[in-house]
Design a protein around this nucleic acid. Structure first.
Lengths: 348, 348
DNA sequence: CTGAAAGCGCTAACAT
DNA sequence: ATGTTAGCGCTTTCAG
């Protein structure tokens, strides 16, 4: 077994092929300006030694590392997993690799990630910042000599391009839909109220109920299942219980559904349910759950595309901005049964 | 804006601090054997220039890249996303970064990924090989000068360590459970029969029904929802319809549940359902679904840990194998209602 | 069309 | 305790 032998180098290939290193280098990089015969010989040598160029050395010569960094709260979160998948596909398209780090929405972890990724000279960064007002992060990013794109959450007061969903409109329309059904007491349940996305959704909800002259019933202290069940119990025991619940996050929607079922709440009969973010079984459970669906893959894809465009721009001095630097994608209300709609949209 | 200024180098720091490059290098790498005063001065210079060491140059000097590669079918797949998350956490622990590539179970994509990752000199590789008998992949991996660990699926005929779940036992026990409930005609539905995991599960199922003298009713041509619905229709229309269905994959379980509901099949009354792989709403839907649960995070975590142990071993010549190189983790049958169990396990 | 040689930024002998 | 220096593997002028 030739297992622990060190990897062959370019100059070894050159020696074996009886040519100079320059020639081998040319062959590796496309083989232009090389005599067909020499080319063939070099290729054979490369094959024989199963030579692979050492990226580190190329990078050192000032080239791209062909890697981009993606900084997200979690990989296990379906939303970010889909974003990551989409971004990875785009990266491959550009012959690049995707390095993923997770932050669990901790600002320090974000800073740390950016630093590590910069040391590794990734060509660019895509980040979903937890705190929209993190000035330490902003200044760090400003010093970054590579393009950066914000994902799902913008980084205000900076010139960093971003790709987000229209959280305000999504929540606003959803609430209006509930109002249209005749519900008068719509409770909104959420947690992580410091996140941009959640804040926007809360605003959307608030604007809708207030302009309809309805009460704002907001519980933004939700975390796990028990807290959801407790919240619903409290709501049910109130003098005037709500007639609809709007949950701002996938896991809360599921917990709420579970709790309502456990507590014998008839959906939508005694209380309607509408959730932010679609999920696989939302169509299947009974009643099926009406949700606001975000263009998840699209978000990841566009963020990566913008990043590579910036990369392109910084290479060749071009003037045109074919794509806007700040993208806000629309969401869609998927009407199913839990909101009271009788004729759900066509099934899968 | 000092935005496009090139990153400062070690020798610039040295000049600014009025010391030699060696000293700066020492400071970066822990600051041992350096006079406290000099150390402070250098640190200040580093701070002032906001200097960050260039990884590429260090790598070139034969050091670790502090990156490991993870090659999986998809990031969006919850199973692999969780594995990736767990592996990433372990990587961070070892001060390393995780580079993820996806293959969609295509052998060529796997080969390609390994090559790219090797060029980037990742310190090690974790791979979930689609085809257990891919000799091209095996020989490529054998030539790899870095440690490799197989994830979820082993790579036989090679000395590559692996971490997998005991798919045979999981499926076997699940089938026996169904048999114990008195079902005599247990149908098994699956797709992707070339995958190691699926093959093992099929074997486990087959062994159980055969040794109980029951018929093997296997449909391994399932792909999407329509194919599931079609299969169930066929099963229902048969002379002797099955009294239980065992689905070998998450998405098929969900599709089957959906289809059975649509076709008015009472679960478990007229037909029981048991699925491989747990999922969030399995507990919540009615009836709740009995499943075989795999230790997902554990698989990702252990694969990464073994990789770093190998890395450790290749650095310092040690003899002990504290951890077995081939790990098979147990699964657990989570009893809920769809199999006919009347007293489901404690809820979440 | 091809080769010699100069580094890229850093580390590690080897001196001092 | 600190500086000098020789590369790591590759690309890239600049000459042939």
């Amino acid at each position: 077994m030739t297992k622990k032998t060190k990897a062959p180098t370019l100059s070894e290939v050159a020696r074996k092929a009886g040519v100079g290193t320059t020639t081998v280098s040319r062959v590796i990089n496309g083989g232009n300006r090389v005599d067909p015969k020499t080319l063939a010989r070099v290729r054979k040598a490369i094959e024989a030694l199963s030579y692979m160029p050492n990226q580190a050395a190329r990078i050192l010569k000032g080239h791209r590392t062909k890697t981009i960094g993606l900084i997200i709260p979690s990989i296990a979160d379906p939303f970010f997993a889909s974003c990551a998948e989409a971004a990875q596909v785009i990266a491959r398209t550009h012959d690049s690799l995707l390095i993923v780090t997770t932050t669990h929405n901790e600002p320090e972890a974000e800073i740390e990630s950016v630093k590590v990724l910069m040391q590794h000279q990734t060509d660019g960064l895509i980040i979903a910042p937890s705190d929209t007002d993190n000035s330490a992060l902003r200044s760090l990013l400003a010093r970054a000599s590579v393009p950066v794109v914000a994902l799902d959450r913008p980084l205000p007061h900076s010139s960093i391009p971003f790709v987000v969903a229209d959280n305000f409109a999504g929540a606003n329309l959803a609430t209006q839909h509930l109002i249209g059904h005749g519900y008068r007491r719509i409770a909104c349940m959420t947690g992580e109220k410091t996140l941009y996305t959640i804040r926007e959704r809360v605003s959307g909800y608030r604007q809708a109920v207030e302009s309809a002259g309805l009460p704002v019933i907001l519980d933004d202290s939700i975390s796990d299942y028990p807290s959801v069940e407790r919240a619903i119990r409290t709501l049910l025991g109130a003098a005037k219980p709500p007639d609809a619940i709007f949950t701002l996050k996938n896991s809360i929607t599921i917990s709420a559904f579970e709790a309502m079922q456990k507590l014998g709440v008839v959906i939508p009969g005694s209380m309607a349910l509408l959730g932010y973010d679609d999920f696989e079984l939302a169509e299947t459970v009974r009643p099926s759950i009406t949700v606001v669906r975000q263009p998840i893959e699209e978000i990841g894809r566009m963020a990566a595309e913008i990043l590579f465009e910036e990369l392109q721009r910084s290479r060749v001095r071009t003037i045109d901005h074919r794509r806007p630097r700040e993208v806000q994608l629309g969401t869609r209300l998927v009407r199913r049964s839990s909101c009271g709609c009788t004729a759900p949209q066509k099934a899968v």
